[in-house]
Simulated assay, not measured.
Amino acid sequence: MSEADEGLPPLALLLAAHAGARAQRHRAIWAFDGRLAKVARTTSDRAIGQMRLAWWNDVIEDVDARKGRGEPVVDAMRASGAMAAPGLVAMIDGWEVLVVEPEIDADGLRDYAVGRGGGLFRALAEMGADAADAPEWLVAAGQVWALWDLAGHVDDPALADAALAMARDLLPQADGGRWPRGWKPLRIAFTLARQDVLAGRGAPAGMSRALAWRLLRIALVGR
């Protein structure tokens, strides 16, 4: 396991393991998401949080690949080709909502979901740089996943309920998509989230034996 992989949640590692030859790239993107999550989790000053997120934006746009050199996640993204993935800037925009907004309303939740979730799924799926290149159902699936994940990691029950309600409303847009074989990790992630959203549950903490069995079933039989 590389230094960039340290601290990745078990779910991200398991999902990346289903990416085959693209596993290193997937782990790098998940690690990037984890860095952005840390900014949102540890920053109390909105201006400082925005500066930290802007640093990552500058890294992505650095055509000379010099900025951030030596930072494990930056190096992993460049080595795996993940730095060129579409959706990375959108992910930053999504996480910024949680950094700058003292209270998250419906518009804020939607912006977070579109940015973080839609951007993440586009990045992992290796879609074109234009959002129009990604199927709408894939972006909706990413939004469902991000809202499910948020619901399981916030201390505010009202915000968690609002996230799950929005995720349920998005399910019809995400259901029915045909998942290419190369998108297996995304199919597993969405199916797991879908099951919990319908049951009124957010993302679980950690990796229990029951969750591991659920993931295995989804991987093998699709549900």
Rank of each mutant, 00 (worst) to 15 (best):
D133N: 12
N57S: 15
L14I: 11
L11G: 09
D161F: 08
A17F: 14
W183C: 03
R214Q: 14
I92L: 02
A129W: 09
Y112A: 03
D169Y: 11
A12R: 07
R110K: 09
R223M: 02
L138W: 01
V144C: 01
R78E: 00
L198T: 11
V89F: 12
A47M: 15
R116M: 09
D105Q: 13
L220Y: 13
A193M: 07
A131T: 08
Y112H: 03
R223Q: 08
G176E: 03
W137E: 03
Q173F: 07
R27Q: 07
V197N: 03
G87M: 04
G7R: 07
P172G: 06
A106E: 14
E103N: 14
Y112T: 00
E96V: 06
R168I: 07
S208V: 10
G108V: 04
E126L: 10
R46F: 13
V97N: 00
M127E: 08
A113M: 02
E71D: 13
F190D: 00
L124A: 00
V154N: 06
A162Q: 02
Q143M: 10
W30I: 00
A123S: 00
A132Y: 13
G152E: 01
R209H: 15
G34H: 01
S80H: 07
Q195R: 15
A82G: 14
A79H: 10
K38Q: 14
E136I: 11
W148L: 08
A134G: 04
D62I: 12
D156W: 12
A31F: 01
T42V: 14
R214V: 05
A23D: 09
A16S: 08
A23Q: 10
P157Y: 13
R194K: 11
L216S: 12
V39G: 09
P157F: 14
M83P: 11
R194F: 12
R22V: 02
A151P: 03
A37H: 08
R69D: 06
L186K: 07
A158V: 06
T191I: 15
L109V: 04
G200H: 07
A174N: 04
R27A: 06
T191S: 14
D196G: 13
A140K: 13
A85C: 11
A146M: 00
A54I: 00
D45R: 14
A203T: 05
D133G: 08
M1D: 09
I104K: 08
W56G: 13
G94Q: 00
A90Y: 07
V97M: 05
